[in-house]
Design a binder for these strands. Structure first.
Length: 219
DNA sequence: TTAGGGTTAG
């Protein structure tokens, strides 16, 4: 860009750094981050969050948490996205307790957690076998008026099927439909698999036999 | 203008 006579700005650098993180070239991403600082460009909250995501991707929970603190010290108040990135990292590495600690911290600081954050925690809880805890968190999510999204429903269907609670899983499908959402093929496959494992192959065969929505074909 | 999340089995 300099060769073209155009000055890059923070967004240019952030976009490049993000590209490197996405391409799993984290050390190059950090080098570019350092380079932009050396050149006098000021990273912003988003630049910091991109680095945070890189740390999360490489599974370095300790550095991710420390980097979150560093952001605060430098005056970049972490928002829901920054917190969510670290919470997800902790969840994926089995550090549910630490994740819940950050979760309450974010609420105490006046942030409203969104579906992304609830889903990360719910997923971790279900996978760790903390079904009761997951149930409580789901209730909190509903009470807080956070809409369940396709990710939430997928976590619930998966968890119920793994527990052999197929009727409950099917019930989730009905709930989704009432919200105007259609389960995707992976969700159906999970249900089919669950029925097959219970020896209910004929049930499995008819799982997709729902009345199709024909409104767009009625001219 | 730039940032975060999930799943099947074969």
């Amino acid at each position: 860009m300099l060769k073209l006579g155009v000055e890059p700005n923070v967004v240019t650098f952030s976009t490049l750094i993000n590209g490197l993180v996405k391409a799993s070239k984290f050390s190059l991403a950090v080098s570019l981050f350092d380079e932009m600082v050396e050149k006098g460009y000021q990273p912003d909250l988003i630049t910091y969050s991109i680095i945070l995501n890189g740390l999360s991707k490489i599974g370095d929970t300790g550095r991710a948490v420390r980097f979150l603190r560093l952001m605060e010290e430098r005056g970049f108040k972490p928002n829901v996205v920054a917190y969510g990135t670290v919470i997800d990292c902790l969840c994926k590495n089995g550090l549910l307790k630490e994740a819940l600690h950050l979760f309450s911290e974010l609420k105490v600081k006046g942030n409203r957690p969104n579906a992304v954050i609830y889903n990360c925690l719910l997923y971790a809880m279900c996978n760790l076998g903390h079904q009761e805890e997951a149930r409580r968190l789901l209730n909190e999510m509903i009470d807080s008026n956070i809409s369940l999204d396709i990710f939430t429903y997928s976590i619930l269907i998966d968890a119920y099927c793994k527990e052999g609670m197929i009727l409950e899983a099917i019930d989730i499908v009905h709930t989704m439909r009432k919200q105007g959402m259609e389960p995707n093929v992976v969700m159906y496959n999970i249900l089919v698999d669950a029925y097959c494992k219970e020896g209910m192959v004929s049930k499995a065969e008819h799982i997709g036999d729902q009345p199709p929505i024909m409104s767009h074909t009625t001219f």
